[in-house]
């Protein structure tokens, strides 16, 4: 059932045009969520997509989970500069329409994890909450967004 829903036929060629058509806009939206600068985001898109496709084709990986891999690849490339928790929270204060249904804590938790790859334990320390609470807030945030999108 999900193969059809996911729309990822296994025999699809993984050339640059395929990657570009499928992921460039999503990746640019994601990069912009981290970088918060249009020109820099576009420059990073070119760099990341170039290097990712080279690595990906070389590794002959399967089609599944490409977006998750690409997102994490971009996250690792962009978050090499370590931000302090205060800087992180300041950066997160920029409003984003996709996250409108979340409360403040859920937004902070979701964005810290989604854009900056912060772990549950790191967030628990920096936000002064228990790990279970942070895990719960992350789940609630994702559930809310899925429901808001009718999923």
């Amino acid at each position: 059932m999900f193969k059809a829903v996911l729309n990822i036929p296994p025999a699809e060629p993984k050339d640059i045009r395929w990657f570009y058509d499928r992921y460039a806009a999503m990746l640019l939206g994601y990069i912009n969520g981290i970088v918060k600068d249009k020109q820099q985001s576009e420059d990073q898109l070119v760099k990341i997509l170039t290097s990712f496709t080279q690595d990906f084709v070389a590794a002959e990986k399967s089609n599944q989970h490409i977006w998750l891999e690409l997102r994490q690849y971009a996250q690792n490339r962009l978050n090499s500069a370590v931000l302090s928790d205060r800087q992180l929270i300041q950066k997160q204060s920029v409003s984003e329409p996709g996250l409108a249904s979340l409360d403040d804590l859920q937004k902070i938790v979701f964005k810290a994890v989604y854009y900056h790859g912060k772990s549950i334990s790191q967030l628990a320390i920096s936000l002064n909450y228990g790990e279970e609470e942070i895990r719960n807030q992350l789940k609630l945030a994702i559930d809310k967004m899925r429901r808001a999108r009718g999923n």
Partner: peptide, 18 residues
């Protein structure tokens, strides 16, 4: 699988055309 798919559609909803 459904969750992964939903995360992909979420990213699509926040996409920006290059």
């Amino acid at each position: 699988d459904q969750l992964e798919f939903d995360m992909e559609t979420l990213a699509q909803s926040m996409s920006i055309d290059p």
